[in-house]
Design a protein around this nucleic acid. Structure first.
Lengths: 363, 363
DNA sequence: TTGTAGGCGTTATCAT
DNA sequence: ATGATAACGCCTACAA
């Protein structure tokens, strides 16, 4: 037995013979996969391989004439360069990793993560970056050294962390070590090769609560804050506190941990003598509203994120809409900038105060 | 100017000099990235490169002694083989592509897609396959030739299509051409190198409707079918028809197109004289239920899919729960089988009739 | 059982 | 402006 048992793949008989007949166009062995290579293009265009490479990579110093010849050969042969070979040769892969946490609070997390993914993938495609998606569980179960090796192995040079929180020690080390270009979403981490991106959480929380308070007569508010694993919870709390002090509100703060369930409980315990409940996330807002409905009392509630589930949650609530797809797209652009040598920086994305209703979310 | 403008990446000064000093451990030029290679491992273990390779790939015919030496060297150096080089060299990449459609009916699609993704990625990791995710929009805007090239370029040998429908001509061609190992989810496409996987849609639709009918006195049912772009709609309809004829039910069928909105409308138009509404998807069930509530009448409704949004939709409804994560995991295992030479086949996954309530979906 | 050497498709250096 | 050619890191047929 010559081949290892665990190896994967279809055998390509004859693949090794191809060069005997120079080029592979003639080697039509059954089962062989035609990988039209740069060599075929070169032959078709009647130029050297290196010239083709120069055309493909938009080098200067190629005559318009040869350029055209090469391009038409490329077209004719449907040639697409082999990414693996390019990466191997240049050691400069145009490859980024997206790190997500799929296990966040189910419904909400799914919607947000899908928006992240599709925003990122579309943007990556435009920039001709290819992307692999990883889960935080996968990064955190590795040591920083293992993770570094893994990323190098995969020819990844840029990483976008969509779920950065204080418990992610491996990713934290990766960021600190600055060996890769990173973008941290919703976490205030910046260095020469790391940028961060988020909405202005302080202002957004302030804004949405202010809007709700302006339209209702509220003096005493219950604020359900998020857990402090994430970095955004503090900012949002600050926004709320700022509003409370400006408007001389009575403020009770409880930790709802971004959990619908926890918010339900806290609402039951603490909401009775409050005029309104401000929640640091939509899921908590939904839990709160639901509980209030069960208790058969009405109080204004507001959330944060702008997920479509809010449209199903009964009463219309104010919330902060973040455009997650756009944030992801911008993150990709930013990591691209970094990969081209730019310095890390902080990016603030716009937000919007909205009122979600069923009619708007239904398709 | 020597480097093309559009190139990506951080320069690694000195990278090309490394071989002058044989091996790269000594070449600690600033900015250089240490790619510990199989060569380093070989040196550390005092064996030949090919021997290391054999150990790594679990070839037989390696003495336990050298095997151990190599393995400890690997561990010591945190060595991880370079996937690009391996793929390039062997032309047998352990790489699969996941094709999804993120634009399906928002909420429902997000939840399902995330379950697909996480199920697939986890399973891929176990099998040491790496996965790239693509969107159907990306596959379908390419010609089959371009797509083929692209996949080869990316060293992809296996493809799982989670959103296969009759409009996807490019993927259809890819499947028919049998150049890649494919798994089609929810589409009855099988050939030597293509498997398909889904629940038994006929039986599932029959089961859930039967359950609902048994517990309510229903004689006349409105069935909201799905659009026929997808392959499952027909099967579900058949299941419903079978039940109707067995139980001598009066059956009215309308095309709800898997749309919540459409289901609302149809409910308004057609439900009045019906005893119950059976929907081919949860989203339609939600739309239906919502409309019935607005009309202030109650009729039993059942859905299909088992998404958690059902828990928010008010009344408890029966639905068919599919374990999308498990389906995805199984799909990956199947594509792995195919990549190892197995033949395509049809796989039926189990389903479950459930009644979703708020308490079950809240976290 | 272990080692040697040639090749995978591309990029980059250096002549021409 | 173009063309040889040596890497890139790994795999594998074949020799030892």
């Amino acid at each position: 037995m010559r081949f290892p048992k665990t190896r994967i793949g279809i055998r390509f008989p004859g693949a090794k013979d191809r060069h005997l007949i120079f080029g592979n166009t003639a080697a039509a062995n059954a089962g062989d996969t035609f990988m039209t290579s740069i060599r075929d293009v070169a032959r078709e265009a009647g130029v050297a391989i290196s010239t083709v490479s120069k055309v493909l990579n938009h080098y200067p110093n190629v005559s318009a004439d040869t350029k055209e010849k090469v391009e038409s050969a490329v077209e004719k042969l449907h040639f697409v360069p082999n990414a693996a070979a390019a990466a191997l040769s240049s050691k400069q892969a145009a490859r980024i990793a997206l790190v997500l946490d799929p296990s966040r609070n189910s419904s909400i997390g799914d919607e947000i993560n899908m928006q992240y993914i599709s925003g990122a993938l579309n943007s990556a495609m435009e920039l001709k970056l290819d992307a692999v998606t990883l889960f935080s569980a996968m990064t955190e179960e590795r040591t920083p050294e293992e993770m570094t090796q893994y990323l190098q192995t995969q020819c990844v040079t840029g990483v976008i962390v969509f779920c950065m929180n204080r418990n992610m020690s491996t990713m934290r080390r990766i960021i600190d070590e600055q060996q890769f270009c990173c973008v941290a979403v919703d976490a205030p981490l910046v260095n020469r090769r790391t940028s961060c991106i988020s909405v202005d959480n302080v202002k957004a929380q302030y804004d949405v609560a202010a809007r709700m308070i302006r339209e209702n007569n509220v003096k005493k508010v219950l604020y359900l804050r998020g857990s402090s694993d994430g970095y955004v919870a503090e900012d949002r709390l600050i926004g709320m506190q700022r509003l409370a002090s400006e408007k001389s509100l009575s403020l009770v703060v409880a930790n709802g941990e971004f959990s619908e369930k926890k918010a339900r409980e806290l609402t039951g315990d603490l909401a009775a003598d409050r005029d309104a409940v401000v929640c640091a996330s939509d899921m908590m807002a939904i839990g709160t509203m639901r509980r209030l409905t069960e208790m058969d009392i009405f109080k204004p509630v507001c959330g944060f994120d702008g997920i479509s589930l809010m449209g199903y949650a009964g009463n219309r609530m104010y919330t902060v809409r973040q455009d997650f797809g756009r944030i992801a797209a911008e993150s990709v652009r930013e990591v691209y900038r970094l990969m081209n040598g730019a310095e890390g920086r902080k990016i603030i994305m716009p937000h919007e105060i909205v009122r979600m209703k069923y009619e708007d979310v239904i398709a």
